[in-house]
Design a protein around this nucleic acid. Structure first.
Lengths: 191, 191
DNA sequence: GTGATTTTTGACTTCTAGTTCAAAAATCGT
DNA sequence: ACGATTTTTGAACTAGAAGTCAAAAATCAC
């Protein structure tokens, strides 16, 4: 009963995620969020409590969506190196196209709130660790399939790859495609 | 003539750099800057024009200081790999100790203003490129000294190392020492 | 000391962020 | 159609950010 909601909460969170992604946490005002979602400021507060809680939901959505994309890319047919190359190239290319170079919401958040804000830090850490796990699994599968040398330390390489991804997504703010793709190739020559 | 300044501009810029480093650009208010520098708000505006101009000077100082540290580390006696390892370890360790995990001012700025603010973006890009150059030079010297294999592409490795550094300084916000040092070791095994 | 010049001080202004709230609107059960 | 419940709306509020300004203070040249 009661007056029905005039919006789909999931859709609003997705739109808010986009706004935060583009503008950063501090850089996105309640007014911006109202504009981006098409929902009145008051309604947003009624539905989500605070800007911060809405951001948490947005970050959560980002993590789940990112995880799905990672799995999808790594599970397509091909060798471990081919699939990881395709995944990194995808990340860099989507960072670069589009009029605003917004990078990675998780990395952005890590730098904007990391260290200061325990909850956001923890959320980003979980996201990162999940990706590391997926990469390590894919490398081990490559070893079983025979396309990755057995003496490669899958776990260590996965950590380095994750670190490389983070670096790429920051450098996408300041450097151009060819440089970034060259970095990808050099990184892949490590295993 | 006229009333003499009651502060050393260079010292004030250094203190402002510290404040911006800890709090971010948007997160550091004129009041914070006045407190951090010990100079009144009005005087700061009188001397530097705007928060933004003061930030530019702070970023510039950061770049010059960083460049000196890089040169110092790479030029100590030792092989290229030893010196680069020491340099990366130094960066990670200084990121980690101290009560606030503030990471790297340049990387923070790249993510906070990069893409949106052309001048800041350019400044960060110059800083990055300078470091890449220093790393590449050190690798080439290693090849001349015989401690780096001649088939290593010094330029490509330097780019990858720079990318690794950026990644490390972001991950220092969310991850712990052992993980980061393991990443350094894995990265160094690439050449 | 006087005047010219520059710096300091702190009050003041304007603007916006983030949030709250009271009243109106929309729905359901009966 | 009424009351209960929930949502929307827009105004209102508080706090703080960024910047401005006039007056006081400190120096030097003369």
């Amino acid at each position: 009963m009661g007056r029905p909601k005039e919006f789909e909460p999931d859709v609003v969170v997705a739109k808010a995620m986009d706004a935060f992604w583009t503008g950063g946490y501090a850089g996105t005002s309640p007014a911006d969020l109202a504009e981006a979602t098409g929902v009145g400021k008051g309604s947003l507060y009624h539905a989500f409590g605070s800007k911060r809680e809405l951001f948490d939901k947005a970050l959560d959505l980002y993590g789940r969506a990112g995880s799905e994309i990672t799995e999808a890319y790594l599970n397509e047919p091909g060798t471990a190196k081919e699939r990881i190359r395709a995944y990194l190239a995808f990340l860099v290319d989507t960072d670069l196209d589009g009029p605003v170079r917004r990078g990675c919401l998780a990395a952005n958040t890590a730098l904007e709130l990391g260290g200061r804000d325990p909850e956001a830090t923890e959320s980003v850490r979980r996201m990162t660790d999940r990706t590391i796990e997926l990469l390590a699994e894919r490398l081990r599968r490559g070893q079983r399939d025979g396309d990755v040398a057995p003496d490669v330390d899958a776990d260590a390489q996965a950590h380095l790859l994750m670190n490389t991804i983070v670096g790429l997504r920051v450098m996408a703010r300041t450097h151009d495609g060819p440089v970034l793709h060259q970095i990808i190739e050099t990184a892949l020559s490590g295993f």
